[in-house]
Design a protein around this nucleic acid. Sequence first.
RNA 1: GGUUCAGUGGUGGAAUUGGUAUACACGCGACACUUAAAAUGUCGUGCCUAAAAGGCAUGUGGGUUCGAGUCCCACCUGAACCACCA
Length: 996
Amino acid sequence: MDKYNPKFIEPKWQKLWEEKPDLYAADNDSQEEKRFILDMFPYPSGEGLHTGHVESYTATDIVSRYFRMKGKNVLHPQGWDAFGLPAENYAIKTKIHPEKTTKTAIHNFKRQMNMMGFAYDWSRELNSSDPEYYKWTQWFFLLLYKNGLAYKKKAKVNWCDSCKTVLANEQVEDGKCERCKNPVRQKDLEQWFFKITDFIENKLFASRTRATNAGHTNEKSGKTYTSGLLSGLDKIDWPESTKMLQRNWIGRSEGATVKFKIVSAEPSPVRSTGHTLPITGEEEYLEVFTTRLDTIYGCNYAVVAPEHKIIDDYKSQITNYDEVRKYLESVKGKSDLDRMEAKIKTGVEIKGLKVINPFTNEELPLYAADYVLSQYGTGAVMAVPAHDERDWEFAKKYNLPINQTIEPCFITINGLDKVREDQPFVERDSITAIVKHWKEESYIVLKWKQVDWKTFITGGPENDQSFEEAARSEVLEETGYKNLKLIRELPRYHSQFYHIPKKLNRFAHMRVFYFKLENDEHQDISDIDKERHEVVWVSENDIEKMLTPEAHKYVWKVLKDGEKVFTSDGVLIDSDEYSGLTSEEAREKMAEWLEKNNLGARKVNYKLRDWLVSRQRYWGAPIPIIYCEKCGTVPVPEEDLPVKLPTDVDFLPTGESPLKYSKSFQNVKCPVCGGKATRESDTMDTFVCSSWYYFRYADPKNEKEFADKELIKKWLPVDLYVGGAEHSVLHLLYARFFTKVLHNLGYIDFDEPFLKLRHQGIILSEDGRKMSKSLGNVVNPDDEVKKWGADSLRIFEMFMGPLEDAKPWNTKGIVGVYRFLEKVYKLAKAVRIEANGSKSGINKKLDSLVHKTIKKVTEDIEAMRFNTAISQLMIFTNELDKEKEIPITNYQLLITLLSPFAPHLSEELWNSLGNKDSVFKEKWPEYDPELVKDEEIELVLQVNGKVRDRIKADADLSEEEAKKIVLASEKVRAHISGKEIKKVIFVKGRLVNIVI
RNA sequence: GGUUCAGUGGUGGAAUUGGUAUACACGCGACACUUAAAAUGUCGUGCCUAAAAGGCAUGUGGGUUCGAGUCCCACCUGAACCACCA
C-alpha cells in the first residue's frame, strides 16, 4: 500500500470501530468529568444529509473525540426529530404512510453519518415519532396541564389555509406561513396553549418538597426562584446575536397604564343592556398602555383597536354606530399581512364618546383604528402625534391637532472623545451655540458652562444666579447680543441626554442655558450660512460636530421637510410642573402621581404570547386529553400513556384533525366515570417533541420516567450545543421554557439546558447563492466522499473558514485538503524508528514547532477555531516533509493531533506503525511551555513606525542591547542620519522603534 | 424604516487583540520528470518600477498613537434578523 486510498481505509475502520463501543459510548458509571456534546437532532428528510449537517456534525465530532482523548466521559448521541409536516405532505402525495418514509429516511441518514465517521453513541438513539418516546412528550403535556401551565382557550389564532392548521406566532414570518409561504389568516378557534409567558421573569420556586438544593436563592429575600427566560440569558455562553433575538422576541417594555375617564357627549347614557351608566367606577375608564408617559401632555386623542369591547359596551351612546360598524366590518376581513401592508392608516371617530386626559383634564376625541393591536397592552393607546410616528401619520390624515411637548436637545460636547482619563476636565469650559428653533421662526442661544467637578458631584446650588449672569455676559461678549431672555436651564445630570459615550460620563458636568434671542437682534446675524443648514454655530468652527448624529439628522429633516416627528427622549415643554424635566425623570414623577391618584400604574408589557401547541394534523404526538359528557375535560391517566396514533386514517387535511375520523381513536370511555367520551383529536406542534429530547439521551430506555433523576444529574445540562441559527427563537426558546418548568417543579436542579451554544454558518453554493434543488447547485456529501473520502470532506468543511460564518463552497478547494492527507500518508516512509524512544534536543527548531503545534491545535479545538488548527497541522506536516528522517515520536504526535479531524486515516497510520490499540485510546498530548518559546527571534527595527530592518536576536534581549543593535544597523542609520533621536520604543521579543 | 454584524490579494481566509499585514490553502506562472497528458516535485506570485533601492496598499475620508486591519468619528457598500408591540 503506498497510495493513500480512502475508499479502502474508511469502510474498513468504520466496521472495526463498530465492534469497539468503548470508543464512542458514554459510560454511566465512569467517575471522570462528563461532557455532553450535542447536535440539534435532524429532521430526517428524504433528501439525506446536506453540507450544513456535515459541517456542524463534524465540529461536534472533533470536539467529542478530543475530549475523550483528554480523558473526559463524553456523551455524544444522535436522534431523529421525526414528526412533522413534510413527511405528512409527502404521504398525502404518495399515499405512503409517513412512518414508512421516515424509517427509510432515517436509515439513509444513519448510513451517511457512519460514512462520515461520526462517533455517535447509537445505543442512545431516539426517535420522536416512536410511541416509547412520545409517551413522554404526552407526559410532559400532562405535567404542564396539572400545574396550570397548559390551557385551552378560544382566541384569535394564525391559520394557514394551505397547511390547514393553526400556527404558533413564532411560525409566522412576514404574515406568511413559515413552511408554505401562504398568507396567514386570523381565525377564532379554541386551541391549546402553554403558558410560556409565566417564565419570562424570575419565578418563585413552585415545589419545595421535591427540591433538594435546586433553585437560586435571592440574597435579599431569601426566596428560591427559577431564573426567567430573560435573566437566564445573562449567564449562558451563547452568541450575543442569538440572545438579542430572544430578547427582542420576548419584547419587554416598561411603561404605565393610564386611565382616561370615559364621558358621554349625551347626558343620559343608556347601555345596550338597558342599564344606565356608570355601573361601577371601573367601567368609566378607558385604560391605555404607554411607554412614553412623558409625552402625555401632547396627547390629543385616544385610539382603540377595532376589537375593543368599549364599542359594544357603549353601543347606545355611539352616535355614529353604523359608521363605526361599517369600519369594523371592513377591517375584519383583512389578514395580518394586509393590515401590515396597508401604508395608509385607516380609522373612524367614535362619536358620542369622549375621554379625559387625567393630567390636563382635557376632553379628547376617541377613535377606532386597526393600527392599534387588540392583543397587545390594553388594546387602546393614547395618541401623541407630535412624538409618535404612527400617531403622527394618523393625525395628518384626519387633520387632528399636533402639540409638541418634548424638545430635542441637539448638542453633544465637542472634544470629549479626545479627553483622556488623566485629564479631569474638558479643554473648553464654555461653549456657545445658536440654533434655529425647530418650530418657530426664531433663534435660540444655547450656552454651556462647565460646573466645577466638586460642585457637580455634591449637587451644588440649584439656582445659582451668578452662574447664569456669568453665562449671559459671556454670550454678550462673544456675540454682542443683549436681549437674552432665559427660557430654561436644563437640569444637570443628563449625560445620557447628550449621547456621550459611557466611559466619558463623568465629563458631562455642564450646565446648559437656553436664551431666547429677540427677533430684531437675530436679523444682525451676518454669518448665517443659509445654504448649508441654517444652523449657525458661533464660537467654534468645528462646533457643528457637537450635534449628536441623531440630532443632526433631525435638524436636517426639520429644515428640509418643514415638519417631522421627534420620537426620542428629550426635555419636556408645555407640561405644567413637569416642564424642564428630562423624559426619564418625567416618566418617573408622572407614574408616581398616577399611582397616588389611582389613575394608573407602572406596567411591564411583553410581545411574547403564550405558545399555541395544538395542530390539526396527523403526523404528531396526540394530545392526551379526553372530553367526557359528564366530567368535562379529563387528562388521560399516566398509566394509559402513550395515546397511540391510529393507523386507520386518511391523511388528507380538511381543517380538522385527521384523527377525528378514526373511530378506533375517537370514541373512548371516560377514565373518571366510565361514561361516553371522545378524545382530543389535535396533535402537538413538533416543537414540543424537541423541547425535551436532550433529557432523554441521559436515559433513553427508561419506561418509568422521562429520564432517571440521577442520570439527569450525571449528564445534564448540555455542555456544548451546535446547530443552525434559524432555531434562535423557536426551538431554543421552547427548550429553555421546558427546562425552567422542570426546574420550577423541582425535577431538576438547573434552569438552563444549553450552557454553550454555537451556530454553524450556512454553506452557500459556489455561485454565492443558497444551495437549492431548484437551482441545481446542491453539493451532495455522498458524491464528495466518493471522490475524496470522508476525511477530506470533513477537513475541507472545517478548513473553509470560521464555523459560524456563511461560506461559499469551492469545488477546487477540497483537492488541497486531499493533498495534505496524502502527504501525511506518504511521510510514513521517512519515519525513523528510534532505538531508545524520543531523542529530543537534536533539532531544537523542530522541537519548538512540535510544542507550538500541540498548543495551537489544543487551544483552537477548545475555541472551535478549526480552520486555524488545520492550518497549523499543515505547517507542521510541511516542516516534517523537509526532514530526511522523521523521528517516530514526531510522526505519532502528528497522527494523534490529526485524529479528531481525520479519524480514518489517523487510525490506519497509527495501526501501520505497529500500535495495537486505537489511536483514540491515546492520551491527548501536552505541550511544554518552555519549548513553545523561541530562543531566537527576528527583531524588527523601525524608524518612525516603519520597518527598516530585521535582525536575528536572542529572545530575551535587554533594552540596552537592543538599542545597540538598532544603531548598528546600516539601514536604520541611513534613515536617521543627521537627525536627533527623540525617543526609542522597545517591545520585548518583538521590535525597537526609533522616533526622530 | 429599525437593530446587529461585516468589508483584507484573482479566490476561501490568517494576523499572538495596538507591535513584521496577506499565515495556511486554492488558483495562476515558470521549470523538472514524460513521446505527450495527467499526477508529482521545485521555485515564484499584493500593487507601482526592467531590477535594486524605494514608495503605495486592509471599502472611503478624518482622528487618537512612537506605531492602527485592529481603537474613536463620519460616509459608502453588502449580509442577516426584526418590523404598526404605543
